[in-house]
């Protein structure tokens, strides 16, 4: 229905105030009425001026027409966050997850040109929130974001068997490694990797929630991509320390020396542990965690 001349005259709006008003309304997660009357919206255009500017159609009111954009905004941001941190929904449940989506994007609206960055501030938001088990949830989100980063990291060719074989036997003590770009190591205070593995094992139809263990229990994780296939594997504390040192270009001999403290006093146990970690190191080399060796 056309507006009257009086209504139109009162609704001459400028581009910048119109845009700020529309973003304020579209990104407000309350009812239509709350959105139009929100402080962000009315700072730009009074309810009356805004109502004068938005035209109804034959079938929809002004509120319903703007409401289409509002609903799509919520669904889009919810789905984007779900892609970034899928297991969080199983920790919170659908209803609480959707509440969290609204609170998160109100506190940290997207400022990126890509939806792929939607979850970047989520761990920070969770730590600032009053959610139960918030430290656990923040670390879980960090793990999921780390996996996404590794998936998108640049491809670097890994060491070849020939390059490894070319290192003289007496040089190994002093060699340093350059890691591939698609590699991240993480030490978590809570068992979030165990949780994430359980989440991945669920069938896509299984909507049951996964219980959170609120007790701290360190999880060490290596996330890497090889031939465009991303893996996340659990590490022992010794393995984590060794791999962290190697990716920081600490010479191999010094890095091995530093992790001896984990092998215990008993010589037989220590030898067994030494053999185990040596074998793990060889697996890492062969599975493409390193891009170059510096002798």
């Amino acid at each position: 229905m056309p507006k009257s001349t009086t209504e139109q005259a009162s609704t001459i709006v400028h581009l910048d105030e119109f845009q700020r008003w529309m973003v304020a309304v579209v990104s407000h997660f309350g009812t239509d009425e709350e959105a139009w009357n929100s402080e962000g919206a009315t700072t730009e255009l009074s309810h009356e001026r805004a109502l004068g500017n938005v035209l109804p159609s034959q079938t929809l009111t002004e509120y319903e027409r703007i409401g289409i954009y509002r609903r799509m905004y919520f669904l889009r941001m919810r789905d984007a966050l779900l892609i970034d941190v899928p297991s969080i929904r199983f920790a919170l449940g659908q209803s609480l997850f959707e509440e969290v989506v609204e609170q998160y994007f109100t506190r940290y609206p997207s400022r990126s040109y890509t939806l792929n960055d939607s979850g970047l501030m989520f761990p920070t938001f969770v730590r600032e929130s009053s959610l139960p088990n918030k430290e656990f949830l923040a670390e879980l989100a960090e793990l999921e974001l780390a996996i996404s980063r590794v998936i998108e990291a640049p491809e670097t060719p890994p060491l070849t068997a020939e390059q490894i074989a070319a290192v003289p036997a007496d040089a190994w003590e002093n060699v340093c490694f350059v890691p591939i770009a698609a590699l991240e190591l993480h030490a978590f205070t809570y068992p979030v990797h165990d949780y994430f593995c359980a989440f991945e094992e669920k069938s896509s139809e299984d909507e049951t929630l996964l219980a959170i263990s609120g007790e701290p229990s360190y999880n060490y994780v290596c996330i890497h991509r090889s031939d465009y296939h991303t893996e996340h594997t659990a590490l022992t504390e010794a393995e984590y320390e060794l791999l962290t040192a190697l990716t920081a270009s600490v010479p191999l001999g010094i890095a091995f020396e530093a992790v001896q403290k984990h092998f215990g006093e008993n010589p037989a146990d220590a030898e067994k542990a030494q053999q185990h970690i040596t074998s793990r190191f060889q697996e890492w080399m062969m599975s493409g965690l390193f891009a170059a060796i510096r002798t």
Binding site: D16, R20, V23, Y69, S110
Partner: peptide, 18 residues
């Protein structure tokens, strides 16, 4: 979007001279 905020929607333009 505006003021650095991105709604990730294709929002409608005001068809004006400005």
């Amino acid at each position: 979007g505006v003021n650095g905020r991105n709604t990730h929607d294709l929002l409608p333009i005001l068809y004006s001279e400005e």
